[in-house]
């Protein structure tokens, strides 16, 4: 599809206005970045971020509203704490914490948001290659989850 690192971005639907930036679920300027819109940055479960990295994504980031202005009052602060924790956990597993990012931009900060994502992607491009995905990415997730819990 493109030559950039595969990046998954979880973006709060109240924060950056993605309509002018997105095309077919990806950023128009960086097609290697897949955007998943979520109701609040606090909705993102850290295991999903870990999972995305484990399944072969080169980087994952979460975007919330500016700190202090979360529509749901605390979602972005909670998510920042969870991302910090997950970064420490990744470091123990020899995964570079730079592969995980937390951004905070408001409805109008489209250009600043794009610049931050570009910097994030460039940072990942500079890293040594990641470990190969621990499971075949073709396996559908729900079926895999069912097999794991007998």
């Amino acid at each position: 599809m493109s030559n950039g690192p595969k990046v998954v971005g979880f973006v709060c639907d109240w924060s950056v206005d993605l309509v002018p930036l997105m095309e077919g679920g990806r950023l128009r300027e960086m097609p290697s970045v897949r955007i998943i819109r979520v109701p609040c940055s606090g909705f993102v479960r850290p295991s999903w971020l870990e999972d995305a990295l484990g399944r072969g994504a080169d980087g994952v980031f979460v975007t919330g509203c500016p700190y202090g202005d979360c529509l749901n009052r605390e979602g972005n602060y909670l998510m920042r704490d969870r991302v910090d924790q997950l970064q420490r956990r990744l470091q123990r597993r020899r995964v570079d914490p730079a592969r995980l990012g937390m951004l905070a931009y408001g409805l109008h900060d489209g250009p600043a948001f794009l610049a931050a994502v570009r910097a994030f992607v460039e940072g990942i491009r500079a890293l040594p290659a990641a470990a190969p995905p621990r499971s075949a990415p073709a396996a559908p997730a729900p079926a895999a989850a069912e097999r794991e819990t007998p």
Partner: peptide
Amino acid sequence: VQAQVLEAVR
């Protein structure tokens, strides 16, 4: 969510 993640990494 998982379906979207899979689509992204595949």
